[in-house]
Simulated assay, not measured.
Amino acid sequence: MDQQEALTHCITTSNTTHPEIDEPYKGKVRDVYSLNEKTLGIVVTDRISAFDHIMRQAIPFKGQILNQLSEFSFNKVEDIVPSHIIDVPHPNVTIAKKCNPIPIEVVIRGYLTGHAWRVYRSGAREICGVRMPDGMIEHQKFPEPILTPATKATEGHDEDISEEEILNQNIVEKELWNRIRSVAFQLYERGTKIAEEQGLILVDTKYEFGIYEGELTLIDEVHTSDSSRYFYLDGYEERQKNREPQRQLSKEFLREWLMEHDFQGKDGQTLPDLPDQFRWSIYQRYSELFETLTGNSFEPKIIRNISSDLDQIFEKYV
């Protein structure tokens, strides 16, 4: 694999020349095309975001890894809740059911890490209406996993919200919310079991849901390195005892790199450029997580003309 060629051929955007397909909705990572009244074409690009900002430089093969890891993980939980996947006809493309999205990110945290730790370190002992025990240290396991929802922002930062506020503001009806929270904890339990079998700890993760033909449906992605944080199981207890940093597979290392370069997404801060070698190291971490979780080797494929690929794939759905 030619490293420079891979860095040059990242997929940062997509388009199709099909006359009946409109411009896509562009999220932080995905370009989403409406193919017909029931079907979406989702292109998982190589864009990467942190602190709700999209980096100017993309990560080679990141989209392929996320797309294929999501397919693997959706299949592992299909007995708990239906997913939006119809087909994965291309390394970067998923054909999906067009769901009515629920505007809440459902975050399950098993450990005091990341955003929860930053809240805790500030002196607060409550997050999203959930009380956190006193006397905890960073990366410590909670007595029980906690649910810390966030509003799904179309622009800017997602905002923490309590379950009580979700119901009081009628964002989600109570019966549906009870179903969502039950499913979310079941998904986290399943993800935890799969991770443990591969020598990992599923630290925290987020789920997104929609409604398809009246049925609760899991959408977006599941148990990937963009939506989840993983620690290595081996040595976890020893590192905790010695107050040492945990070895992890997640985007946290990108956030830490950005903070070291004086960027946390705050007003007045300048987004730094990602050096090529750092971009390659990020790809290697994504690839490692894919191979660790799935037990399969990752076979990268350089995509030279995503638009032409999309024209052929989408034609059968329009």
Results as ranks from 00 to 15, higher is better:
residue 251 K to Y: 04
residue 112 L to K: 07
residue 277 Q to M: 14
residue 186 Q to S: 15
residue 176 L to Y: 06
residue 308 S to H: 07
residue 288 E to N: 07
residue 206 K to F: 06
residue 40 L to P: 01
residue 54 I to H: 00
residue 162 S to N: 02
residue 100 N to K: 14
residue 275 P to E: 07
residue 233 L to W: 00
residue 45 T to S: 07
residue 217 T to H: 09
residue 297 S to Y: 04
residue 229 R to T: 05
residue 15 N to G: 14
residue 99 C to D: 01
residue 126 E to G: 11
residue 106 V to L: 06
residue 291 E to S: 05
residue 289 L to E: 03
residue 313 I to G: 01
residue 124 A to S: 11
residue 165 E to S: 10
residue 96 A to F: 02
residue 111 Y to T: 10
residue 159 E to N: 13
residue 222 V to D: 04
residue 102 I to T: 04
residue 125 R to E: 08
residue 254 L to I: 14
residue 258 L to M: 14
residue 293 L to N: 04
residue 19 P to H: 09
residue 161 I to L: 07
residue 172 V to I: 15
residue 286 Y to H: 04
residue 219 I to C: 09
residue 215 E to V: 14
residue 98 K to P: 02
residue 153 A to V: 08
residue 186 Q to Y: 08
residue 297 S to P: 00
residue 124 A to K: 14
residue 116 A to Y: 07
residue 115 H to N: 13
residue 77 V to S: 03
residue 34 S to T: 15
residue 231 F to I: 03
residue 67 N to D: 02
residue 171 I to V: 14
residue 207 Y to F: 15
residue 170 N to V: 01
residue 123 G to V: 10
residue 203 V to I: 13
residue 29 V to N: 10
residue 267 D to R: 12
residue 12 T to F: 09
residue 278 F to Y: 15
residue 159 E to T: 13
residue 13 T to P: 03
residue 84 H to F: 02
residue 100 N to R: 12
residue 276 D to P: 00
residue 142 F to Y: 14
residue 255 R to A: 02
residue 56 R to C: 00
residue 137 I to V: 11
residue 136 M to R: 03
residue 147 L to I: 15
residue 134 D to A: 11
residue 180 I to G: 01
residue 306 I to E: 05
residue 221 E to F: 06
residue 95 I to Q: 04
residue 209 F to W: 07
residue 210 G to L: 02
residue 137 I to P: 02
residue 64 Q to A: 09
residue 23 E to W: 06
residue 102 I to E: 04
residue 303 I to M: 02
residue 91 P to L: 00
residue 167 L to P: 01
residue 120 Y to G: 08
residue 131 R to W: 12
residue 158 D to N: 04
residue 40 L to F: 07
residue 9 H to T: 10
residue 255 R to Q: 05
residue 143 P to V: 11
residue 238 E to N: 10
residue 250 S to M: 12
residue 190 R to L: 10
residue 20 E to Y: 11
residue 225 S to W: 09
residue 37 E to A: 12
residue 65 I to L: 00
residue 101 P to L: 13
residue 202 L to I: 12
residue 46 D to P: 03
residue 239 R to C: 02
residue 3 Q to A: 14
residue 29 V to I: 13
residue 314 F to Y: 13
residue 274 L to G: 01
residue 196 E to A: 14
residue 300 P to Q: 11
residue 11 I to N: 05
residue 182 S to Y: 12
residue 83 S to K: 02
residue 173 E to C: 10
residue 147 L to T: 10
residue 124 A to D: 13
residue 28 K to N: 01
residue 30 R to F: 03
residue 17 T to N: 13
residue 234 D to Q: 09
residue 102 I to M: 06
residue 234 D to H: 09
residue 80 I to Y: 08
residue 142 F to M: 11
residue 228 S to I: 11
residue 6 A to D: 06
residue 35 L to P: 02
residue 82 P to M: 08
residue 73 S to D: 08
residue 154 T to H: 12
residue 125 R to A: 06
